[in-house]
């Protein structure tokens, strides 16, 4: 806790500046989707005609990129399911592992985060040349990035409680392994599972590097399509596409913030 009022004020100012830096580019893009970008003082040379109404842009985007939107959503959902199926048991194992082995497993899982997407994409193209065009390749690539976050969120949730002792208490009270899983482990892991699932969804939803390199024109995900819109189409169209893209992310972020809050309220001090 910061006790000093001046320190607090300084921290507040810094946080405000950070928010401006982070939010302003997004705000400009969102605004351009709805109003004439020239009003924002942006030059008109690169984005072509702006004589359509805002609603038309959205319709146009939906028509043009509906396929890639659906593909992105489907891939993200599959990534979430697979991240849960692989990541939840892994997180459980890590939480139960004592000492060095648990830490080692955690560190190993995070290796993919340090590898540039470019390297991952080229590696996958070389290793699985024929799988390249299939959505499975994208799912695998996204999983590499999503899994560490999923496992970390779930393991962190489980680390807030003395899990093995609680399981022993449940066993002594008569709960078999299935009941322990259902009544103790899963409820305690739930905030982590939700947070990890949302993060996995958003990582897959927004992943560009690997997807762009792996994708063929028929297997494009939405971020790749978005890139093409910015480079080949008018700016307002791209901006409208970005708004659609953000529309999916914002509720997820809100839910994430909510989970973090309820989790804190739930366990109070030392549980």
């Amino acid at each position: 806790m910061l006790e000093d009022a001046r320190l607090r004020a300084a921290a507040g100012v810094l946080l405000g500046m950070l928010l401006v830096v982070v939010v302003s580019p997004i705000a400009v893009v969102v605004a351009s989707a709805f109003i004439d970008p020239r009003w924002l003082g942006l030059s008109s040379e690169t984005w072509g005609s702006t004589d359509r109404s805002t609603a038309t842009w959205f319709g146009y985007v939906a028509e043009l990129y509906g396929g890639s939107l659906l593909r992105s959503a489907a891939i993200a959902l599959v990534v979430v399911v697979l991240a849960a199926l692989i990541g939840a048991p892994a997180a459980y194992g890590i939480s139960r592992a004592r000492g060095a082995s648990g830490r080692a497993a955690r560190a190993l899982l995070e290796v993919p985060l340090a590898v540039p997407g470019l390297a991952v994409a080229i590696g996958m193209i070389v290793a699985y040349p024929r799988a390249r065009a299939s959505p499975a390749a994208l799912v695998v690539a996204h999983l590499l990035y999503a899994l560490p976050f999923f496992v970390r969120a779930t393991a962190n949730a489980l680390a807030t409680v003395p899990l093995s002792e609680l399981e022993e208490a449940a066993a002594a009270a008569g709960a078999g392994s299935a009941q322990r899983l259902r009544r103790i482990v899963l409820p305690l892991a739930r905030p982590g599972l939700l947070a990890g699932g949302l993060m996995a969804f958003m990582i897959s939803w927004g992943e560009f590097n690997v997807s762009f390199l792996l994708a063929t024109p028929t297997t494009q995900t939405f971020p790749s399509a978005l890139y093409l819109t910015y480079t080949t189409n008018s700016f307002p169209v791209a901006a409208a596409a970005t708004v659609i893209f953000l529309a999916a992310a914002v509720p997820a972020l809100a839910v994430l913030a909510r989970i973090t809050r309820t989790e804190a309220a739930h366990f109070g001090e030392a549980a």
Binding site: E165, L166, E168, A169, A172, A173, G174, G176, H266, F267
Partner: peptide
């Protein structure tokens, strides 16, 4: 016989109450 079938009550030193 696994713990859950012994019908034993166990009070842990650290309580081990279910926090949720």
């Amino acid at each position: 016989m696994p713990a859950e079938r012994r019908g034993v009550g166990f009070v842990f030193q650290s309580y081990a109450l279910f926090p949720h």
